[in-house]
Amino acid sequence: MSTGAKPILSMKEAVRRFAPDGQELIIGGFAFSDPTALAHELIRQQRKGLFIMKTSGGVLVDQLVGAGCVTRVLSCHVWNSVGPVPAHCFRRALEQGKPHAIEIEELSYGAFTTALAAGACNLPFMPTTPVQGAGHFTQRTFLPEKFAVVENPFGGGPVCVVPPLKPALGFFHVHRADEYGNAQLFGPAGEMRFAMAACKKLVVIAEELVDTEIIRQHPEATVAPGFMVDAVVVEPWAAHPTDSYGYYYRDLAHHALYGELSRTEEGFRRYIDEWVLATGDHAGFVTKLGEKRLAELKVRHRRYW
């Protein structure tokens, strides 16, 4: 954590520098602003043994699991929300141990949000959704202390609490950032502000790099002040096939394409070969999507900012 200018890195370099094998990292996005471009680069660099935290798993987590990059997942759900259809690789890993077994730990979205809020504010714990008796409460794998029940010190019965969650590293998609790391996200923010602030190290992946004077025009949209950010990656279309509010829509056809191919291991490998490995980098991926598709996905209405 520091002030001053931050390194502006390519995705390749950011992954090389921040995410070695075995890295614990939280990836931002809640089925929108999912930085799929990051997952693709982790796959290209053949990462192994990652511990991925992600509130909404989606296609991004499914691809990392299918490509064998992951040994642990902490999430509140993993699926392909267009259709909807299952996250097939995630299912194969948990049902059949393919390509290898993974460990899963689960929180509800509210519990995940409050654990991150406690982490962000450095609170010892935080009251959360009552989940006593539910599966997430009783079923614990690698986080045996993910919930506790305390007596309300002010009277009124039992209260379910979560400990602070402080991920070692975070990668978050944002709309724009400046050279100091001031990062802005417009539209709904889900748990993102808490999640970013909970991270010990933070890399933002911005659709565009802008001058600080542009940031100053809408300070209310800054979700991470520059002093919390360690590096900036500039990567247009980084969240495709999910949406980026004000920039582009969810690519339904691509979700469906992935959903269909990933039904089999062979189809999944074909997707990865064709869309991830052969494209070389995210610019190559975007070129493969083609001008026509990009034009359809671009948000045409005027932004308020």
């Binding site: 759900h77 979205y109 539910a134 997430h136």
Partner: peptide, 18 residues
């Protein structure tokens, strides 16, 4: 060792708890 693994909770737990 699930027979069928489904997506998980999302915010569903909150809807039914609260």
């Amino acid at each position: 060792k699930p027979k069928v693994r489904l997506p998980g909770s999302g915010g569903g737990t909150e809807l039914s708890s609260l």
